[in-house]
Design a binder for these strands. Structure first.
Lengths: 212, 212
DNA sequence: GCGGCAATTATTCAAGCGTATAATAAGCCT
DNA sequence: AGGCTTATTATACGCTTGAATAATTGCCGC
């Protein structure tokens, strides 16, 4: 019998490949089209292998969800820490969230597909909650540092409220900018984001957006 | 042969029932669980009938998407026109978008499920675009009327930019408030929304949120 | 009250689904 | 170099899927 030749990969490598293939299939065919066979084909293996690395299809989907969300948050945080001042870090964080690769139709499709499962499967809800809180905390940390740098006194409640508003604005612009990218010019969205954050924080226009 | 008795309904009535059943199934089981048979059972008919009213399952899904989006936008617009002044109408529109029944887990699940198909099926993209533009236009109309009422001169570009920012904020708060409803107090989200809109429009604190 | 139209049901079909199990070969260890 | 482990393939199973077709029956107009 002619069996196809194959390569024995490490567990980490295979899982990575399978997760990547899962995301490819969801983005391309929707969550209904992300079948075990399609995913396996995309990963260059046969279907049975999936059950060797994951307890079932659902567990693989959950791992894929974690991967997407980690990627998004970490990209924004990575962009932020490049800044030298707290103001610059906040600025970079905002911009990163409304700029590729975060604003990417594929990423948005994946995000939406998983969001739609939050009310169905508690595991997905937990993954979302975890990442939402992490995002909120990252943003609040940047915000507090910025206020301190500016010698501005802000109550804890007000800080939290502003973090939530900023988060909402950023998420909303991310959505709009990704779903209607053709309606916005190159820097239009980032400029709008910075101007809006200035307004939300009651800063003077240009205080945040002006490069150094 | 014992066939089940049935009721011959009008076309409008049947389509409505089938669409409602479709949304029920998507919300409850996810888009993968919204099968022809499940939907038919939920609607109290047999599967074959679906193909009598829709060219196929996809067309029914599209009709269902239209229904969801119409419901969301119209709820907010309906709340707005109850206001007596432009300021009150803007205020009511904002609040409606971050308050039940718009902030509803079921609605969000449905919305997300359809959003995830935008990149796959151009028909879904068209439905989204149409409703997004309608929402934007409704918001911009309210905003322009408010500026006029306040005798405030705002350039066309600035008005558009602020509409987009407001839209982003509202959408983002809608997302947060629905996905993490347990983290927010009863009026916390609406209060935050109003305060944030005040800030975005560079109004004095309380100018919009104060009743009357 | 009954004839006929068409809305609805019932049944069938091929394809594809996720999973389980057994056979196989890749490649490390000695 | 050759045996052993186990990652991987191959195949089969029972169900479910969306769609097509044929049979039926509710009900409107006469």
């Amino acid at each position: 019998m002619n069996r196809r030749t194959y390569h024995r990969a490490s567990e980490a490598e295979r899982r990575e490949d399978l997760i990547a293939a899962t995301l490819d299939c969801i983005a391309e065919f929707g969550i209904q089209g992300a079948t075990v066979r399609q995913i396996a084909m995309r990963a260059g293996v046969t279907g049975g292998l999936i059950r060797h690395y994951f307890a079932g299809k659902d567990q693989m989907l959950q791992a894929a969800y974690r991967k997407v969300m980690m990627g998004m948050t970490e990209t924004a945080i990575a962009a932020a820490i490049e800044g030298e001042t707290a103001k610059s870090r906040l600025r970079r964080f905002i911009i990163a969230n409304v700029t590729p690769p975060v604003t990417d139709p594929r990423t948005l499709s994946l995000w939406a597909a998983f969001i739609s499962h939050i009310q169905i499967d508690p595991t997905f809800a937990a993954i979302h909650r975890e990442n939402y809180l992490a995002f909120l905390e990252a943003l609040e940390t940047l915000l507090v540092a910025f206020f301190r740098e500016e010698n501005r006194e802000v109550s804890k409640q007000q800080c939290r409220a502003q973090t939530i508003a900023l988060s909402a604005l950023v998420d909303g612009l991310w959505l709009e900018g990704t779903l209607a990218a053709d309606l916005f010019g190159d820097r239009e969205l980032a400029d709008n984001a910075l101007a809006s954050v200035e307004a939300l924080l009651r800063l003077a226009p240009g205080e945040l957006s002006a490069e150094q």
